[in-house]
Amino acid sequence: MSTDNVNHQGGAVDEEFTDPGVPADHRPRRADVDPKAANRAERQVAAMFGLSVLGTVIAIAAYVMSDVGGDNIAGVQNSTMLMGLGLFLAMIGIGTGAIHWAKTLMRDHDMVEERHELRSSDEARAGAVDNLKEGAKDSGIGVGRRGLLKGSLVTALAIAPLSVLVPAIGNLGGDWNVSKFRHTMWKQGVRLAKDPDGSLIKASDVTIGSVFHVIPDGLTELEHHQLEEKAKAVVLLIRMSPDDLNVQPGREDWSFDGIVAYSKICTHVGCPVALYEQQTHHLLCPCHQSTFDVANGAKVVFGPAKRALPQLPIAVDDEGYIIAKDDFNEPIGPSYWERLK
């Protein structure tokens, strides 16, 4: 322990203050001077360790007695809580015990350890350089020599990983047919069905102020890629008073007596947009709060989305069921680089 406790008194004033050194006076703890206090501390530590043992017993008992399974919510809650509290005691007992021990009975005055500069000594550095030089000489590839050998090695090393990476990455993306984004299950004549049970929807079912969450008829019977198709095809079917609906130019025959259908997938980053406010005809996305005005072509009125929701053109067939007249006229969901190509 090196402490240079130099006191500067009188004489010339220094440029800077001097380090007074590690405080020499160590204030003793109660346990340092009073054996009774030390014994008390020991008992406290032992009690904490004892608490831990008790916690372990509780945790094991909770496991043995746990009554879970079935529809027993209370049983799950009780066993989780009891077992967890047992574990808590088992851990905190050891933890606080060990720390209390360290704080009261172990050394508490500072020691000093010297640091060494991290930089290697000059001899070591010179030695390293020499060793590398010698090694390079032994390999025959000193500076400026055997360029062909070095070049070919570097090239081989640089491209060799491709032998693993190309097949590996090549397989990751399935068929890489990214044009699938463009199309959904909707096409002319596909009936609109209720999500999730798949029952069909008649125009007369959709009263003013109603919202139907819609999937294409036939989705539930798909053998493969049901979720992928659903992820693109979900639609919201909304009816408002025809007076409130501003039909968009060029889309006069896309709606039916105040009934409109819009893609449910947000044009921002693809959350299902689903909060329909009946009075304002606004559709809010709960993820990032893009707000679309259903009465006005589902155009964005607030939030981080730019584009209106794609509209699904609909009609009513002979039996009164609502059908799609076509697929969406643009890719649904978030923007991507080649979406307009």
């Binding site: 851990m91 905190i92 606080t96 060990a98 720390i99 360290a102 050394r107 350890e113 640091r115």
Partner: peptide, 26 residues
């Protein structure tokens, strides 16, 4: 050029070791 404090064994074995159990407990 120095470091002033307490030794790993036993003080920090106990303090840091005990602290693991505290974190687990919480």
């Amino acid at each position: 050029k120095n470091v002033v404090g307490l030794p790993l064994f036993p003080v920090y074995m106990a303090k840091a070791g005990g602290f693991f159990f505290v974190v687990f407990g919480v």
